[in-house]
Design a protein around this nucleic acid. Structure first.
Lengths: 135, 135
DNA sequence: ACCCTTATTGAGAATGATTCGCAATCGCAA
DNA sequence: TTGCGATTGCGAATCATTCTCAATAAGGGT
């Protein structure tokens, strides 16, 4: 049983461009929006590549994903630790929030019902000040 | 400005069949699964109708919806009040759970950040006893 | 029981997001 | 510089869900 030959990840122009867009975004963005931004910046990347890269990044936990009205929205958060979001339905801006109590509560509820390796999702959706005053 | 003429909702065979499937399900089901069940029961209903009915039911709050891996899953819950779920990733069985503290916490966090009409989603995903012992 | 209005359905086309297949491309270690 | 193979591009293929619109059928009125 030999050692698996190391697979070397490669840094490409398109990955850098996508990470750059994510890095400067304060809101959750869809793959399509990221693609449009890239086009606008004259750094076009194929839509399929945007999806592929986003999938890789979310799988490795480098970006957070939330599902809103049928589509996946991505964001690179400041916090690498487990956290939740308060997201504006209108414009998408989001605030990273924490709720330590929830973790313990979730664990307790899970074991009380005999569930294992429990995970959870929690997101708050509302209208931010800017959007609610805007109209 | 006259009184709007009353629109009378009609009870149809297909709606009854769909509600019946939902009523006997202990797990969250996709529109496709419900459709298959109907076919199996020789109570075929067009897929579009299943989607339409499910949308109506979820809009009125009669059934709960959760999004899991890109698709909507529906379930008719016992509790009509606001609640959350502990869902098995493997088989889909779910338990209705509550967390009153969460509501107040959410409201507090929201106002602290200037957000209005905040709503939230919380679901716990894990492996139920049956599924984890099964293999 | 029979009409009639119109809510609802069925079937398939249309949409939208995301994934796939595969040849062309380009990062990078030797 | 070179060659292997990871990664991309592009269009076709999937998948879930919605829409169109003519045909059907609930149920209130007679």
């Amino acid at each position: 049983m030999g050692v698996e030959p190391q697979r070397s990840p490669r840094t490409t122009r398109q990955q850098v461009a996508i990470l750059d867009v994510l890095g400067s975004a304060k809101k959750f963005c869809s793959a399509q929006q990221i693609h449009s931004t890239l086009v606008r910046r004259h750094q076009e990347v194929a839509l399929a590549t945007v999806y592929r890269t986003l999938k890789t990044l979310s799988d490795s936990g480098e970006v957070d994903v939330i599902f809103s009205e049928g589509e996946a929205l991505y964001r690179r958060c400041k916090s690498v630790e487990h956290h939740h979001h308060l997201v504006c339905r209108e414009c998408g801006v989001s605030v990273e929030i924490e709720n330590p109590d929830l973790e313990t509560w979730a664990a307790a509820v899970a074991s009380a019902h005999g569930f294992e390796s429990v995970d959870h999702t929690l997101e708050l959706y509302g209208t931010c000040r800017r959007c609610s005053s805007g109209k």
